[in-house]
Design a binder for these strands. Structure first.
Lengths: 250, 250
DNA sequence: TCGAATTTGTGCGTATGTATC
DNA sequence: GGATACATACGCACAAATTCG
């Protein structure tokens, strides 16, 4: 603390963090106990405790009462491709994980009619209380749940057509764009907003995560001639996936 | 703490949280000082401090040194636009780095040469140890830090040209695409990967957050004819911002 | 099976630095 | 400058969980 620099607990946390990220403290190993940190860095109990708390808040380590503080496993997030843009001459070193993975995925779904709530109504540009078809998906990749999705479609668009139920009929499971095309609704653009937050208990239960884990949330809305025809909330665990976009410039 | 119940600091935090959420402590009001909490709840200084920390970690309040602890405005996440796709008719000049509406944004930067590490080398498709120009940005919106960015450009591309330093010369601060165009490097596409994680202590210090808050991380790479010419890590607090993409379909 | 040592988690009292009013 | 309030830091105590002889 004689430092004019940063607080002592951040200095200690920073040093431990470096040892974790550079591999000298690999996953599942125990980091020095509070008492040892106190000795090694010549700091007080409080500083050692605060430093551990910082690393725990960052999700790098987890404390097990009575046992120790352990380095967490940090899987290398894979990419989930969100656009089909391919430039002329696809020589760009875009990683190969995208196409292969999504092909062998499986999913389940359940549809039911509902009334549009305030948020869904705004996203679909309908009135609150208008009838919508709500479909919940669970996506699996190699048997492991990787993605949750809840989709809403206004019945004003799909009602009394063969594609009213997303997963039934000849076009079941074919994707929004193709299904809409079948009823002459030409989807021409899509807006996606990517956010993140701590996962809800139920989400993390389904995704096989741990309370406190972070999830990415994509709010996606498909438009046909400026009119919203489908909107969805897509939830993926942030420690295992990233959302990838590939866009032309200009 | 003689209670067999929950920890004292959680009890205090819970009570204050209720007062905040039910509106009896509206945004921008100051909550009781540490000393007053100590008196009102009959707890020690440490417990009062720990309770405040809990609320800060939840993003409900923010501490201002020397002034007090204030209830934060419930942040309705704003969008940061990431693509230039516009419906026919709009020709807005725009900067990839900032949302259109934050025209009043300001930024600072600091550049220095460095050797490419393993990750940067892969993203730029150069060899580990190759010289790169590393620039760190701090973006402010209405005076408030909203975004951190670290950018790397291979000196093999910009070295010995007028745009070697991103923020100097006639094209300083003009954006990667225009600067590269000035040296006849035509940027034609960009890949972005959006991930999320708990923010590092230093990041959250700069962003006005608290350890444990979630940040969105965008890894952006610009390509010119398939060759990476710039890559950047962009960090924004997830409780205040979302990343928005608008894409054509098919 | 028992018990001792270790470790985390929580809590207390105090002191000092520093930003704000 | 002085008063107030947060932020950091030190040292200690104890309960609960775990580990290990």
């Amino acid at each position: 603390m004689t430092f004019g620099e940063q607080p002592a607990y951040l200095r200690v946390a920073g040093d431990l963090r470096k040892k974790i990220t550079d591999g000298s403290l690999p996953p599942h190993t125990r980091l020095p106990s509070q008492a040892r940190i106190r000795e090694e860095y010549g700091v007080s109990d409080t500083v050692a405790l605060e430093a551990r708390k910082v690393l725990m808040a960052e999700g790098l380590v987890e404390g097990r009462s009575g046992s120790g503080t352990y380095v967490r496993e940090r899987p290398n997030p894979r990419s989930v491709a969100r656009t089909g843009f391919r430039g002329p001459g696809t020589s760009t070193p875009f990683r190969q994980e995208q196409a292969a993975e999504s092909a062998r995925g499986t999913w389940e779904s359940r549809s039911e009619q509902a009334d549009a709530g305030a948020e869904v109504a705004e996203r679909l540009a309908v009135r609150v209380g208008d009838r919508v078809m709500c479909t919940k998906y669970v996506f699996r990749d190699a048997g492991e749940v990787m993605m949750l999705s809840t989709s809403w479609e206004p019945l004003a668009v799909t009602g009394r057509t063969p594609v009213m139920l997303p997963e039934e009929g000849p076009l079941g499971g074919c994707g929004v764009v193709d299904r809409m095309a079948a009823i002459d609704v030409i989807v021409d653009n899509v807006a996606e907003e990517v956010g993140a937050r701590p996962g809800l208990a139920e989400e993390l239960l389904a995704l096989g995560g741990v309370p406190g884990h972070v999830v990415l949330v994509v709010q996606r809305t498909y438009y046909a001639s400026g009119r919203p025809v489908e909107t969805a909330d897509i939830v993926v665990p942030a420690d295992r996936y990233r959302i990838a976009y590939h866009l032309p410039v200009r």
